[in-house]
Design a binder for these strands. Structure first.
Lengths: 222, 222
DNA sequence: ACAGAAGTGGAGGACGTGCCTCCACTTTGT
DNA sequence: ACAAAGTGGAGGCACGTCCTCCACTTCTGT
């Protein structure tokens, strides 16, 4: 028994590694389109492999999520740090919230990982925690400049994201950019001073669109 | 065959009518607490009757919902009309949105019937449609007075409700009135003019509360 | 008081959904 | 060419909801 029969980190066989990549790619797409609730069966179907293969590579969905989203979250943190460097503190904050909404609007999986707190293992949670200090500094900087109303606190931002995310979830099929309109309204509410309303980036929906959006709204289950 | 053996509108036997009322009351409570997704089995349990009894009285859940919520919606329309009578048009609008949030926050069933558009039969849908003209007038009146920014449209209101509703769904167990804070921010965004921020009615949440709220957030299923 | 109509309850069947296992088979590397 | 590695997908399991069914109980009119 000089060498154990299975070395834990022996590289995968070539075909197996190819499948692993296919699974990751399929999962990324599926999660982005349909959110984290897609089944591993569906991911297998998209990747063109059997369910068994998926389960061998990723013992459960959480590990697949963890592997996929750690990088994405870190990338997003970097993006937030970039907003800290904007010359105008309000623009930086605004850009941050807008980009967050953008990502949430086109990647449901990311949104769920970022907002929900229940998904992901250590790696993702640790990455998520990196957000806190950056957001705090974004808020305080804009307040120090007198641009952001003094009575908001950093923890307001995730909740505002949550509101806009819920909206964009409903309007995604009706008018995918509708959230920009409501982001405009909320941001106007966040300004410290403002004589006139800032023009809204997006037109209002008509009655039929609102009806369809409402139909898309699903109450939290159970 | 002078009289058919079963007259369609013969009154129920006394005990049956008592049970019917118990079912309606239990359903009202259950829907308010847990939303429309409660099972008829659960409603039966709460009413202290068997499932069979519930199914005999209300062939399916929709009819039960229809029977329950028609009145509630009409009552709410009346309340909206009342806001139209407020001497200050902005206060009227504000009161309307606030009351809507209040109802949504403490009666999940009502919120789902009012917002989702998929529940309820004719009676409820007809009642829901009564809202449209009232909301339109509330908005136009506040705009005519120069209080509400000119670029909002009546259809913005349901979507704003939806945003705040999503938020209040998440924070209900952490801080049931947290929605008031974000309503304050949004309303400030809706004002046509405003030098300084209007003081917020509710303090911000701390980091732990936000974490718990996020944990409560459930992405739209499937 | 009694007959028969009306009403009851809740076990359990039908169905749907998602997770994951298992093993006869195929592919790869040496 | 042969063993080790990898595969696929049918199907088992667990769960949850909806709703039916019928032996039993309760009511009501006479």
């Amino acid at each position: 028994m000089a060498t154990s029969p299975i070395t834990p980190d022996r590289p995968l066989r070539r075909d197996a590694e190819r499948n692993r990549q296919a699974i990751l790619a399929a999962a990324r797409d599926a999660f982005a389109e349909d959110g984290l609730s897609v089944t591993l069966d569906e991911i297998a179907r998209r990747a063109g492999v059997g369910v068994g293969t998926v389960y061998r590579r990723f013992p459960d969905k959480e590990q697949l999520i963890d592997a996929l989203f750690e990088d994405e979250i870190r990338g997003f943190v970097a993006l937030a740090e970039d907003c800290l460097g904007a010359e105008d503190s309000w623009d930086g904050l605004m850009r941050f919230v807008e980009q967050a909404c953008e990502v949430h609007a086109c990647d449901r999986g990311f949104k769920e990982v970022a907002l929900s707190g229940v998904h992901g293992l250590e790696r993702v949670s640790r990455a998520r925690e990196l957000m806190v200090p950056v957001v705090t500094r974004l808020v305080h900087r804009a307040q120090a400049d007198g641009k952001l109303r003094a009575d908001v606190v950093p923890t307001d931002l995730p909740l505002i994201q949550l509101m806009l995310g819920a909206l964009s979830e409903c309007t995604r099929d009706v008018d995918p950019d509708a959230w920009r309109r409501y982001l405009g309204i909320v941001m106007d509410g966040l300004r410290a001073h403002r004589e006139a309303p800032t023009p809204l980036a997006h037109p209002g929906l008509d009655v039929v669109q609102v009806q369809d959006a409402m139909r898309a709204w699903r109450p939290a289950a159970r």
